[in-house]
C-alpha cells in the first residue's frame, strides 16, 4: 500500500518574471513510497530534492499535480495538520529547529501542539528520548550538545508526535563523521524495529547505500531509481550528471576499466574487500 503518493508534481518558487516563465524546482515528479520503506532521495544541490521533501508534509503544495499522504490530498487545507502529525520533517541545521531551552521540553513541543494530555506527553517524551538514546540528557540545554545529539533530539521531537513517517532533509550535512554515524544508526534502528517509514534526503552516497530504495533526482526530475545496487551500477549515467558513486563502487568500476574481471559492483567497503579477495584468488 502506498503511504505517500506524488503524482506528476510541478512546483516553482517564483512567479513569472520579466515575461519569462520561471524555472520549475520540481518538474513532473511521480513517486510512491510504501509504508515501512526506507527511501533515499539523492541528488546534488538545486536538483529539487529539498523542495520535494517539503511537499511530503504539506509545507509546500504542488503548482500542478497531486501529493497524497495516507489518502489525504495535501492541497486540502483542512487536512494540513492531519498530514503533519503523520509525516514529520527534520531539517538540515540542528540549531534552528529546537524550540525550547531544555531537551525534554523541546521534545514535548510537538505533542503539546497536538493537545495531548500532560501525563501522556510525559510518557511519549521519555519513550522518544530512549528511542534515540538521549534519555540521560533530558534536562540539558540543547546548545551544550554536539550536532549529532541535537539532530537526534530533533528526531525524538518527531517521534513524540507518533508520526508514521519521518522525512529528513540532509540531516547530516552539518555534522562530523561521528554525528553522521549516530544519526544514521538511529534511523536504521527506527526503520527496522519500529517499522517507521523513512525518507532520507542526502548527497552522501554512503548513506544512500543503506536504504531499501534509492531515487536519484536531477534538474527537478527523477533520473533513475531502484535498489541501491541497481542504481549505483549505472556509473556512466551518474557520472554524466555530475553525481558520485560510493568509493567502493568507484574503485571496482575503475579496475574494471583497466581490464580486471568484475561481474558485480560492490557498494560497501566490506563488499569491496571480499570482491578483491575473490579476484586476487
Amino acid at each position: 500500500m502506498e503511504f505517500i503518493s506524488a503524482q506528476n508534481v510541478c512546483f516553482s518558487y517564483s512567479e513569472i518574471e520579466d515575461g519569462k516563465k520561471a524555472v520549475n524546482a520540481v518538474d513532473g515528479v511521480s513517486l510512491d513510497i510504501k509504508k515501512g520503506e526506507f527511501v533515499a532521495l539523492l541528488g546534488h544541490n538545486g536538483c529539487g530534492k529539498s523542495t520535494m521533501a517539503k511537499h511530503f508534509n504539506a509545507m509546500l503544495v504542488p503548482d500542478s499535480g497531486k501529493v497524497y499522504v495516507d489518502g489525504d490530498d495535501t492541497s486540502d487545507e483542512d487536512k494540513t495538520y492531519d498530514i503533519r502529525r503523520k509525516v514529520g520533517l527534520v531539517q538540515q541545521n540542528p540549531d534552528n529547529q529546537l524550540v525550547a531551552s531544555i531537551v525534554e521540553e523541546d521534545v514535548a513541543f510537538g505533542p503539546e501542539n497536538l493537545g495531548v494530555p500532560p501525563q501522556e506527553i510525559r510518557l511519549r517524551v521519555d519513550e522518544a528520548l530512549k528511542a534515540v538514546d538521549m534519555y540521560e540528557y533530558r534536562k540539558n540545554a540543547p546548545f551544550k550538545l554536539s550536532g549529532g545529539q541535537k539532530q537526534r533530539i530533533a528526531i525524538a521531537g518527531v517521534l513524540a508526535m507518533q508520526t508514521e513517517c519521518i522525512v529528513l532533509d540532509e540531516p547530516t550535512a552539518m555534522l562530523d563523521p561521528n554525528g553522521r554515524n549516530e544519526v544514521m544508526s538511529t534511523l536504521i534502528k527506527l526503520n527496522k524495529k519500529k517499522n517507521m517509514t523513512v525518507v532520507l534526503i542526502t548527497h552522501y552516497m554512503d548513506e544512500a547505500v543503506l536504504a531499501d530504495r534509492v531515487v536519484v533526482m536531477d534538474n527537478g526530475r527523477i533520473l533513475t531509481q531502484g535498489k541501491p545496487e541497481e542504481v549505483f551500477s549505472q556509473v556512466e549515467l551518474l557520472k554524466k550528471h555530475r553525481l558520485d558513486v560510493p568509493q567502493a563502487t568507484e574503485l571496482a568500476y575503475k579496475l574494471r576499466g583497466c581490464g580486471v574481471k568484475i561481474d558485480r559492483l560492490p557498494l560497501t567497503t566490506e563488499d569491496c574487500v571480499s570482491m578483491l579477495e575473490e579476484v586476487l584468488g
Binding site: 503533519r84 524550540v99 514535548a108 513541543f109 503539546e112 501542539n113 500532560p118 506527553i121 518527531v158
Partner: peptide, 26 residues
C-alpha cells in the same frame, strides 16, 4: 535566516498558536 528556519520547524510540528495547546509540565 534562523527565524525563518525556526518558523518552518514549528509549523512542521503542528504549531498553530495557543488554542488547543496543552503543556507537559503543569
Amino acid at each position: 535566516r534562523r527565524a525563518y528556519d525556526v518558523a518552518t520547524a514549528m509549523e512542521c510540528r503542528c504549531y498553530h498558536g495557543g488554542a488547543g495547546r496543552t503543556r507537559m509540565k503543569v
